[in-house]
Design a protein around this nucleic acid. Structure first.
Lengths: 216, 216
DNA sequence: GGGTGCAGGATTGTCAACAATTTTGTTTGC
DNA sequence: GCAAACAAAATTGTTGACAATCCTGCACCC
């Protein structure tokens, strides 16, 4: 029970609580719609309620928790419709990033993309969906990073955080990696060809496919 | 000096402070890069420091203020490059909204768009840039609203809040209304034609124009 | 003369106690 | 047996004080 890992030293209490709570939610250790009582969290993390409070306010505006006046906080449940709406936003924003990455990436960075693509092909051939899922995230993260579009990157990271639960569900579906591999390779090819138009189209096609899969 | 307008009654202190501070920043009453000392704000708004603190944390994640550990808060200055990046994100997100609005809007709502378009034409003809600017915001807000894309709406409102200063600058530039009027009318026409593809293209063309204007 | 170390002041970060609000369980009346 | 009112418990919102941290200016030493 004493999970107060490191009340440690100079580590600012609020940041500590924030990081702990965010990780716990992202790892799915908090059941969906679970009540988050400030006192309990404070004791659990070894910080005071004020720090927990500050962390909750921050997580609220990240869309990870829901706070109702005088009623408390709970982890936000993302419905299927919301997941679709979020992915639609991802679609256009990642499209933008891909188009910019096609123009702005260095040759070394393009090589990196190709390597990830090869690793993805291998993961599918070997039937390793978990490895493939990790590479999937890595690929999207690299494209974001190479775009140099800081605003879009921040928005996308916020959106992605809200999707953890749905994403896990999707990654382990049989046949899904085979389908998305081609889309991913098309994205990589368009970017390495330095064709922003094609890159945006490829990314949007891919995420349109994800939306279809989400809807089942 | 006693600006403590309404310490009023049940109005929760934090929300009060938050609303006051946000308005003050959006109205430009706070100089760019001005230091925001928690004690001063608390006294000015008639609330306690804790409430101001909570409000500042929230405004930070909205991108309106900047907070540095143990160093305090200041209103965030949006550079020209950032304004361009933000507008690029607006471009793709509003494109998405326009496409969805073209499909989802009711006939009454389409009529509303046409009326705003006529008012804009009149404002330009009469040489009233302020009226035109207001109608401009109204048009964009209506399109967002009609899309039914809640996630995109929230992201866009957050982004727009960061641009207040730059927007004012842009609206009063001579010749600007004449140029953007055509783009706006094209957006309205595409949406009323219920053509999502054309609507997205028109919105993106318009905001690409805004980006060019931002760069001067 | 310039850089370094050291108080002094100011500001943020943290804490524990208090007040206000909501929810829940119980009781009472019909 | 059911509904409404009431009371008690739990939880959040707020307050003021205290501790930690950082910048400023100045003296001091190299």
């Amino acid at each position: 029970m004493p999970n107060e890992a490191r009340p440690s030293t100079g580590e600012q209490a609020r940041q500590h609580a924030l990081a702990q709570l965010r990780q716990a939610i992202l790892r799915g250790e908090m059941a969906p719609a679970q009540r988050l009582v400030e006192n309990e969290l404070a004791e659990q993390f070894g910080v005071t309620r004020a720090s927990v409070r500050a962390a909750l306010i921050e997580l609220e505006s990240e869309g990870l928790v829901e706070r109702i006046r005088n009623r408390g906080s709970r982890v936000r449940v993302v419905t299927m419709e919301e997941a679709v709406a979020i992915t639609e936003c991802r679609m256009v924003l990642e499209g933008l990033c891909a188009a910019k990455a096609a123009l702005a990436a260095t040759d070394d960075q393009l090589t990196e993309l190709v390597e990830v693509g090869e690793a993805m092909s291998k993961a599918v051939a070997d039937g390793e969906p978990v490895t493939y899922s990790d590479l999937n995230h890595e690929l999207h993260a690299l494209i974001r990073q190479f775009s140099g579009q800081q605003t879009a990157v921040e928005l996308l990271e916020r959106l992605n955080a809200q999707l953890v639960r749905h994403r896990f569900q999707l990654a382990l579906r049989p046949g899904r990696p085979q389908k998305s591999l081609g889309e991913h390779l098309a994205m990589i090819e368009a970017i390495t060809a330095r064709d922003p138009q094609a890159a945006e189209t490829a990314v949007r096609a891919h995420l349109a496919g994800v939306i279809d899969a989400l809807r089942e």
